Amino acid sequence: MDNKFSDHTQVAVVSTFSALMDTVFKDNINAACWQRALLGDFKEIVSKLQLKANLTDISMENLQALELSEKGHMARAVILSDFQLLTAAGASPSLNLIKSYERDEEFDFISTDVYSFHVDRSPIGTDTFLCTYYGAVSEILANHHAEQKVHVPEIRQQLKELYPATEEEFESFLSEHYFDLHYQAKPGATPVKLGLGHLWRLAVDHPDQQCLPCIHRAPLEKEGEYRLLLIC
């Protein structure tokens, strides 16, 4: 298989689920990709699922209840297998049918929704897993190609005007409101599109982490097209 992500020094490309789980995040490596060429008709699954909100969590029972063609069956088997593998590994996967995510429009100078480049944070050792089966795909960004929004002078100044306090109190304010989790791409930076069907494991910010957390974002959805996303 052509390792289309192997040129990106932050990404470890693997060919099995066990290798995905065994990849050590250290130094520059903060993302692992089980690169796959999936068989099956995921578009058929999307067309037969019912969107109940802009983001709808799809249960495995609802997925299994769908009447599908042979290729639809193949696609469903992939999703069920991914859920079984991740669940057995201690993760809690969910399947999302997405029209759009909620936008953060509180401030015009900084955004903290999932369309903004961000990292995930956890008090315990964990990882973020995701796989786009259908629709627009997520992106990651090398850490040296990004800058924390709270360190961009004009943004930081506006945040300080919003919350005038001691430096320690201000830093706590940034953390409590998740401003410090968000990044902007440096000029000339090229994000990595995660592609369809590949199962990704991304490093999270937690106390025992031996690398920088992986910076990622959700894509803007394509007009008239839903996304089918596994995430945990």
Rank of each mutant, 00 (worst) to 15 (best):
Met1Trp: 06
Met1Thr: 08
Asp2Arg: 06
Phe5Glu: 08
Ser6Arg: 07
Thr9Glu: 12
Ala12His: 09
Phe17Thr: 09
Phe17Leu: 12
Asp22Thr: 09
Phe25Cys: 14
Lys26Glu: 15
Lys26Tyr: 13
Asn28Pro: 11
Gln35Thr: 08
Arg36Glu: 15
Phe42Arg: 11
Val46His: 08
Leu49Met: 13
Ala53Phe: 03
Asn54Ser: 06
Thr56Trp: 09
Asp57Val: 14
Ile58Cys: 14
Ser59Thr: 12
Met60Val: 09
Met60Trp: 00
Leu63Val: 12
Gln64His: 06
Leu66Trp: 01
His73Arg: 02
Val78Glu: 14
Ser81Val: 04
Phe83Cys: 11
Gln84Met: 14
Ser100Trp: 02
Tyr101Met: 05
Asp104Gln: 01
Asp104Trp: 01
Phe107Ile: 05
Asp113Leu: 02
Val114His: 06
Phe117Thr: 07
Phe117Glu: 11
Val119Asp: 06
Pro123His: 01
Ile124Leu: 09
Gly125Ala: 13
Thr128Asp: 00
Phe129His: 08
Tyr133Arg: 06
Tyr133Pro: 08
Ser138Asp: 10
Ser138Tyr: 03
Glu139Pro: 02
Ala142Met: 04
His144Asp: 14
Ala146Asp: 09
Lys149Arg: 14
Val150Trp: 01
His151Met: 11
Val152Pro: 00
Val152Gln: 09
Gln158Ala: 04
Gln158His: 02
Glu168Leu: 12
Glu169Ala: 14
Glu171Pro: 03
Phe173Ala: 13
Leu174Met: 08
Tyr178Asp: 12
Phe179Ala: 09
Asp180Phe: 06
His182Glu: 08
Gln184Val: 07
Lys193Ile: 06
Gly195His: 08
Gly197Leu: 11
Trp200Ala: 12
Trp200Gly: 10
Ala203Met: 03
Ala203Asp: 11
Val204Thr: 15
Asp205Phe: 13
Asp205Leu: 14
Pro207Met: 09
Gln209Ser: 15
Leu212Ala: 10
His216Trp: 01
His216Leu: 02
His216Ile: 02
Ala218Asn: 07
Pro219Met: 03
Arg227Cys: 09
Arg227Met: 03
Arg227Glu: 05
Arg227Val: 04
Ile231His: 00
